[in-house]
């Protein structure tokens, strides 16, 4: 009697085993989705777009595979490939988090450096303008030139403040581009002022 009961129990368990094995891998799905969400929160689409795309594509492939398996009957259904893809998606999501953090740190440092360099350049421009204004030799039209040059310096200063604001708002690449555009103007104006200073022997 006992042997018969045990046999029934084992048979039931054996029957249930494939059924439980055929359930969608919910835990793995959650883990993979969380990893991808973390990557998005870490701004991976901006700072690690390739790693982000890979993670997203793998997660999508895993979900497609799960849907494919769901459509099959329980005898042929298998979530083995889906589990593997989900594990890969999770891993790629985590890799995207790391890559984004590294790139963001690098870009932030580069932008900060560019803004600092521009600020120094701006200080130099103000010094050159002050020296020119006090120059005893002032040729024809010099005052007008000086006024227009001061206007250029004002513009550069305003754009530099705007680039700094872009940086403060967290748009690091935007700030880098803006700082580069500012630096271009600083270089041009510094060259003009230096040349004017030499020309009039100031």
């Amino acid at each position: 009697m006992r042997t018969r009961q045990t046999g029934t129990l084992v048979a039931a368990l054996l029957l249930l085993l494939p059924l439980t094995a055929c359930a969608p891998p919910e835990e793995e799905i959650t883990a993979a989705e969380n990893a991808v969400a973390e990557a998005e929160a870490a701004e991976a689409p901006t700072y690690a777009p390739e790693a982000w795309s890979e993670a997203m594509e793998t997660l999508t492939a895993a979900k497609t595979e799960i849907e494919t398996q769901k459509a099959k009957n329980f005898v042929t259904r298998s979530y083995k490939d889906a589990r593997e893809l989900l594990a890969q998606a999770e891993q790629k999501g985590r890799a995207a988090v790391t890559a984004a953090a590294e790139e963001k740190a690098r870009a932030t440092e580069a932008a900060r450096e560019a803004l600092d360099t521009a600020r120094q350049g701006m200080e130099e421009i103000r010094t050159l303008l002050a020296e020119l204004a006090e120059c005893p030799r002032q040729p024809k039209g010099f005052k007008k030139d000086l006024e227009l040059l001061a206007g250029q310096a004002d513009a550069i200063e305003a754009e530099l403040a705007s680039a700094q604001q872009t940086f403060d708002d967290g748009d690091i690449y935007g700030a880098t581009d803006a700082a580069a555009a500012v630096q271009e103007q600083i270089d041009g104006l510094t060259a003009d002022l230096t040349s004017a200073k030499e020309k009039i022997g100031c």
Binding site: E147, L148, A150, G151, Q152, D154, A155, I156, E159
Partner: peptide
């Protein structure tokens, strides 16, 4: 055209 004009023209050029 004075300092303010020069400022605006330069800002436009930079933008």
């Amino acid at each position: 055209a004075g300092r303010r004009t020069s400022r605006e023209v330069t800002r436009a050029r930079m933008r």
